[in-house]
Amino acid sequence: MPLPVTLIAGYLGSGKTTLVNYLLRNAKGCRLAVLVNDFGDLPIDADLIEADDGTVVQIAGGCVCCAYGGNLSRALASVLEMRPRPNHVLIEASGVSLPGSIAATVELTAGLWFNGTLVLADAEQIRRNAASSYLADTITRQLRQGDLLILTKPDLVPDEELAATANWLETIAPRRPVVHAQFGAVPVDVALGSLSAHGAGPADKFNGHSRFKSVVLRPERPVDAEAMASALAANPGVARAKGFVLTPSGYALLHVVGPRYTVESIACSHPIGVVCIGLDAELELDCGFESQIA
């Protein structure tokens, strides 16, 4: 099974490091490999570090972190050779990288599966940074290349300003799911997708994340998988969706993250069901498919 890769991008100070550490602490049983290309310190909290040999940092739970400088391709190749094999790869992009380029490299690397781009925006700083003539277009392009937008540090601004920033995000990068996250707290299933499919333990049920819910779609008759995936991707209430459906020509695996989706034909039979995750208030599925609240 290809190794899933999730990209975490966003301008300096947007909270990428905090999110990485949150995921390391909460993706229980999942062996994460973290790749970093920033000029900054390795983004790992000291108490999680078990050993540091200068190039690879061993992290609690069998996770590892390494800085890759200028050569992402080689770092990806070395991750694929790691034994034991990681379950999931996180790439923390530099503050000025355009995530689309990194995504393209991952998608062309055999053995990897690109699992989506999270672009972080600091609720307090993002509009100020985007007003800088040096940075405006870079920040806009970063946000537009995100599949999920994570609005961080929402607690640091008044509600009206938070709403204004959310509206601004909608004008810059329309129809993307926007997740508010304090201290990097994005549910693992939202950030990385359902880990259970990748050999790790069952996903937590949004403990402490009451604003999220999941819905399972179980169409009983064969469906047009492409149309279904595309409808879910077009629905900004759906942050992620994943699962199997039956089509007139056999089984298919759907994979949706924000506006990005893929449909893959599957040879053998699978229990039918597509798990959709989104914000409680926004996850409204009305695409003609039978559903039940999970």
Binding site: G70, S73, I102, A104, T105, L108
Partner: peptide, 20 residues
């Protein structure tokens, strides 16, 4: 075209290290 396409392909033929 573009480094993000060239490097993952070039790596198969040892080209990722030539320049660095």
């Amino acid at each position: 075209k573009s480094p993000e396409i060239m490097t993952p392909v070039g790596r198969h033929f040892g080209l990722d290290s030539v320049m660095v």
